[in-house]
Write a protein that binds this DNA or RNA. Sequence first.
DNA 1: CTGAAAGCGCTTACAG
DNA 2: CTGAAAGCGCTTACAG
Lengths: 361, 361
Amino acid sequence: MKSKSTIVDVAQLAGVSIKTVSRVINNERHVSGEMRRRVRAAVETLGFEPSPSARSVRGVAPQRSHVLAHFYGDPGGIYVNEIQLGMMSRARAVGYSVLVEQIDYESPEAEARFRGLIRRVRFDGAVLTAPLTDNPMLRRVLEDAGTPFVAVTPLSESPQIPSVGMDERRASYQLTQHLIAFGHRRIAYLRGLPNHAGAQLRFEGFQQAMREAGLPLDPALIEDGEFHYDVAIPCAGRLLAQPDRPTAIMAANDEMAAAVLKVACELELKLPEALSVVGFDDIPAAEMLWPALTTVRHPVHKLGAAAADLLLTRLLRGGAPDAWPTPAPHLILNHDIVLRASTAPVLARPSRPRLRRTAPS
Amino acid sequence: MKSKSTIVDVAQLAGVSIKTVSRVINNERHVSGEMRRRVRAAVETLGFEPSPSARSVRGVAPQRSHVLAHFYGDPGGIYVNEIQLGMMSRARAVGYSVLVEQIDYESPEAEARFRGLIRRVRFDGAVLTAPLTDNPMLRRVLEDAGTPFVAVTPLSESPQIPSVGMDERRASYQLTQHLIAFGHRRIAYLRGLPNHAGAQLRFEGFQQAMREAGLPLDPALIEDGEFHYDVAIPCAGRLLAQPDRPTAIMAANDEMAAAVLKVACELELKLPEALSVVGFDDIPAAEMLWPALTTVRHPVHKLGAAAADLLLTRLLRGGAPDAWPTPAPHLILNHDIVLRASTAPVLARPSRPRLRRTAPS
DNA sequence: CTGAAAGCGCTTACAG
DNA sequence: CTGAAAGCGCTTACAG
């Protein structure tokens, strides 16, 4: 209800031409201090705000929306929120905001929806997180629109697309070594969903550490927990029901590790002496669990910030909105191994009578 | 890189005037089927898309952004994400997107920032969550801008502002009754931050149930955990170190309840026999804890959806973007009490020798 | 350094 | 039902 005045009003009040007003508004050079001052004053008293629409009718850069989008695939939970917070931490400093959108990437109408979205709400750049990062449709649509984007993924999938991630394989390798150093030899593994690039890398890190230590990879000790608590519960049950049960269980994420702890508590195992458990990510619950979970701190917040940084430096570079350098930057952020109470040296277990063998499922 | 064609191109191809094209685009009446068909065909072949900027230079409705904003104050975590998901579930069906912004409401430059935000990124409506809901500055700025907003809060703070919430007092009351029904008489309470409207209501519900049961409110059994896990740890420690320690502890949220469980596990109390614990909210960790936490399911997702609904029905009503009805709607959504393993009937405890009294801190 | 003119792509009156 | 004209608020050439 405020901005009713136009450039003409300002020009009249300042006693100059509208062109001069335009020059001042756009901070062009070749304006005398006197003129500039007069125009500024007029703008102030009238509370004049240039109409964005009118400005962009004519050529002019397609007008920045000052919005960065975050697209993600699965419900995501805390992970999504941390990425956003990381993005915001950088965005707000330069006057940008963050828009979030869950993409139903498997739906047949996904492309039409997404094209509609990109036309309707203008955003200057986008961050994609797994499992969206390797979706060809999204890439194509974003490229068509000339919207730069950054992938949050451990894999540098394309030299054209910048990405940020952590070394998931190495982290998993280190965590496995930690268990091995504690004397564990029968170590079980709970895998995640294969559509997440990290799932494969984490498993590889585990395998590598086991191999290097000369430890066997018993297929009976590998389960697929799909990254979900509920799915991991029966997996943990099977693992711990084995006659020669593992002394340690490594889960590809904290949710599944939580499932292992739950089952172990229900079996009244004494933790961590009777069973060491490790997870991955360091979700808020990790510390709250009993015992507190040893895990890898996934620098999710930093990943969001780094992705936003990449986008913003390109967007704010002024000129050349052209393209990323080739090869596009691929950032690997540091992680921490968080040692808590859920891991302990393996105990020399008194040999016990073999239980009846459970049928493999 | 697509939409290069203008209304003139379309008019030429279709062999009509630009005015006719304009009419078809805007679905005006008084256009013959023939004309309409020809124009449609031309639009199709040219891939014509009217320029939003050009349309809005002239009068025309200020142009909807099709964006709903969610403003929140504290980091928020999973709560924030659930609100967003709820909002999205309604927004996407009608072509709206969700923008999120954390507001540093205590900063002195908050107002300037917020005014900048509201001018820069256009959003058609906003959802505010605690502790932002009763912030006068935000309200004023939004009202100045004529942007409708809905508060997510258990309190109907103003007849002008629509809100959605749950009956936090009643839920807390019910949960306390559950403990009392299990025979608990010494029930401790962990309070939350007073800047959250729910904190007070939850405490009132607890007090009411205690009073009605004729149970005393021992000040030594009330601690302030500030809704945070870390802060609640020492509180729980003090509570459980008392010579005549409580048989049940009620926490104003799940995070604090998790802290109680952690301390209890460390003291090697047998749960839930030796101590019943309840929380509030039903965060994802609630189920993962040992023992699984009895709590109130806060319908956060539904609150987000309901808030978005309120906004969208007003925005989509077409005409009259005027105002909310008076009094503005105040929706109370149902909650569930989730009974899990962390509560059990009180055990007749063998009287034990009094420990040395710990000094009140 | 300053300004009068033309034009951006579309819509609003106003005629037919 | 259709169209030629004028105009939205601003910017881009082009002169002074």
